[in-house]
Each structure stands twice: as C-alpha cells, then as structure tokens.
Amino acid sequence: MKQISKVTHPVRTALKAAVIHVLSAIKRHNLGQSFTHLKPHQAKDAFLLLNQLGFHYQSVGDNTYILYAPKGIQAQDLQALEWATDCHWVLAEKSSFLEKQTEELTPTLPFKPLFQKALQLKASDIFINLSQPNATLQFRCQRTLTEPKPLEFKQGLTYIRSLLAISNLTPNESVNQQEGHCHYTNNNQSYFCRVSYLSTADSQTINLRLFNPSLFSFDLHRLALPSELLQLLTQSLPQWRNGMILISGTTGSGKTTTLYALGQFLSRQGKQVISVEDPIEAIQDDWVQTEIKESIGYTFDEALKCILRQDPDVVMVGEVRDKQSAQAAFHASLAGYLVIATLHVNHLGLTATRCQELGIDLGEFKNSVRLQIHQTWDPNTPEQQPTFEWELTSTD
C-alpha cells in the first residue's frame, strides 16, 4: 500500500507546477478538474500527482486500485483519473485506510518476534542476511553488532518478503537495491522503521532502523551542542537567507537528528521549510516532507526543481550521497536559498574533499558553505551524546 507523508495544507504539498494551475480544484478536492491537464494514459504523472496531493491508494490486482479519499470525493470524480491512468478505480473512505493500517500492524505479523526482541535489547537496528542455504539474524545495540544467530533459510526469506511488502517495496530478488519505511505498534507505542534492502547474485540482506518519535526530541537545546554553536544557531541562523549548512559525520552519529532539530526550530520561527529525503526518516508535522520515488520518475533533481517553485525559506536535503544530489543542493544554495544538508564523512577537514569527489568545484564550495558541523559518536560521554566540531566559514 502506498503511504504518503502527512500533509496539512494543499498549497505547501503540491510540488509540481501542474498542481498549481489547478489549485482551486484541489482545495475543493475535485479530482476530475485536477487531472484534466494530463494527456490520455499519462499514468506516471497521474500517480505522481496523487502522491503529491497526499492521497493514499492500494493496488488490488487486475489493473484495479482503491482510492482512500477524504469526504467530498464523489465516484464521478474518478472518471478523469481512470482516463489518465487507464486503470479502474474504486472509492473508499479515508477511515477505511486507517483501519487497514491497523490490521497490517496487528501482532499476527510473522516478524513480530523480531520487533519484540529488538525492543527488549533496546536495539537500533535489525539485520537479516540470506546466502542459500544459510540465514542469519543480528541486532545492533549501542552501536555494537550482536553475534549472528542462525535462522532457517525459509524463515529468513519469509521475514524479508513480508518486510518488503509492508514497506511498499518489491519482494523480488531481481531488484538489487530498495529503500522504504514501515510502522510497527507495540503497547500503544508507534515505531517508525527505515527499511534498506540489498541483493547480489547469491545473497540478500535487509536492515531495519528503528525509531520511536515519542521517545525522542528534536530540540536544539537537548543536543549537547557547544554553547557558542547553540548561540549562533538560535540567534543568527533565523536571519540567514541563503548559503549552505553542511552537517557531516559517520553512520549513526546523529546527523539526521541535528538536521530535524534545525528544521523544527526554523519552522517554528515562521520559516517555510521543505525537505527532500530518500527515504523519509521520520514523519514530522512542522514542515513539508517529500520523498524520492525514482520508480515513478520523481528523482532528486525533479524534486528540487519542484520544491524551488514553492519559494521556500529553507530547503533541507536528507543526505548528499551522489553527484546528482550534490549538484542540485549546491545549485539551490547559489540560487539564493538557505540549504541544510547532511554528508557522510569521517572528519570535518574532509568535507570539502568529499564534495569535490561528488563534482563540486572548490570555488563553488567556498561560495556556498557558510557553516560546517561535524558529529562524532562517543559512547563514553554522559547520556551517550555525540560530540561536535564546527567551523563558520561565512558571516555574510
């Protein structure tokens, strides 16, 4: 089932220019008018438009989809959607979607023991590895992997296929790499799970990163930031109109936590913040989140173009990981937007070098980056907080 990040206002979540032209129709939830700008059978654009409007839908086979729509949508409104997608659509109330979500997260799921064990161990990650005829299970606890536990190969395969299915991914070994997310509820606590799947010629592996938003705070004042850096961020950052802030560190050092804390802070300062993520790490209400979906043509470059048409105050990039994302992020910064992004490097001094490896000219780097923050995880610090280094490169 497709699940789109929570949206609160159609103007802020319509990320394609085509949506803007039919904004009045969107406000009235008139799907018929929303799809009249599409040419016949432009299925990819139609599904993309549904995603960006925050609608939920589910394939039930035989070229048929269920649309879980808010009140006000009529069956006749689906005619244009059927015309654009060349598929049959059935209308269901949005409450049915919520009930369906609840059903999918019941304790009857085959991988419930995995989650229960992870919660018992206070693990941050679950790893399942398959290499026929062997299968193993591991957990990451306090950044340390447990010893591999043997599984029956069939059981491991069932775990992987089930997790892919509820994460809206393809249970198909021929698809080499996929990323998505799912939710799990235990004792009225909701857990957000980032799912990463990788397959090779003779093996498969899946990683689940567990996150409980209710137990975590994206508050700048609770990140153990150096006092000078905290003062800079809380007093000067709201005045910045352009440039780039790069948050660097190794895996698990808390880069996304710092990114989200900055997003929450700036949003509550009255800034319009839009993030592009691959995938979304945790659903947030304070800003608009959009997720890369290359399978339908919604690439990183396309997402940035659409976001900039919304004239945001702040653009957040979940991770600069390749040349495409690096070029798009730096171009947005040079175009006059404030960009906050994360980058995977081992040391503060390697940030510029890593950006050059991703195709960013050193001059472009110096003209864009205003602040570098580097995080290192130190399990020996009180409350196991990351340690921070930072460098202010521009005060303009």
Rank of each mutant, 00 (worst) to 15 (best):
K2R: 13
K2V: 11
Q3D: 10
K6L: 06
V7P: 00
V11M: 11
R12P: 00
R12K: 14
T13C: 08
A14T: 14
H29P: 01
G32A: 09
Q33C: 07
S34E: 15
F35T: 12
K44N: 13
K44V: 11
D45E: 15
F47G: 07
L48V: 11
L49S: 12
Q52S: 10
V60W: 08
T64V: 14
L67C: 03
Y68L: 01
A69S: 04
A69L: 01
P70E: 04
G72C: 03
I73D: 05
A75K: 12
Q76H: 15
Q79C: 06
A80V: 11
K94N: 09
S96G: 01
Q101H: 05
L114T: 07
A118K: 07
L119P: 01
S124L: 02
D125P: 08
D125L: 00
P133I: 04
T146V: 09
L151R: 02
L157W: 04
I166Q: 09
S167V: 02
N168G: 01
S174W: 03
S174C: 03
N176I: 10
E179R: 06
F192S: 01
C193L: 10
R194M: 00
Y197V: 01
Y197C: 00
S203D: 09
Q204A: 07
Q204V: 06
I206D: 02
L210V: 00
S217V: 00
S217F: 04
S217C: 02
F218Y: 15
L223P: 12
S227H: 15
L229F: 14
L233T: 06
Q235F: 14
S236W: 15
Q239R: 15
G243T: 03
M244H: 05
I245G: 07
T256Q: 10
T258P: 08
L262N: 06
R268A: 04
K271C: 07
V273R: 02
V273A: 06
I274H: 06
V276Y: 01
V276S: 13
E277N: 07
E277D: 03
D278L: 00
P279T: 06
E281D: 03
A282P: 01
Q284H: 04
D285H: 11
K293V: 12
K293C: 01
I296M: 07
Y298E: 08
V317E: 06
E319V: 08
E319A: 05
R321G: 08
D322T: 09
D322A: 03
Q327S: 13
H331R: 07
H331K: 09
Y337P: 04
Y337L: 13
V339Y: 02
L343Y: 05
N346E: 11
G359Y: 11
N367C: 14
S368I: 04
L371M: 12
Q372R: 12
T376Y: 06
W377P: 02
D378G: 13
P379K: 15
T381K: 15
P382N: 14
Q385E: 12
P386E: 08
W390T: 03
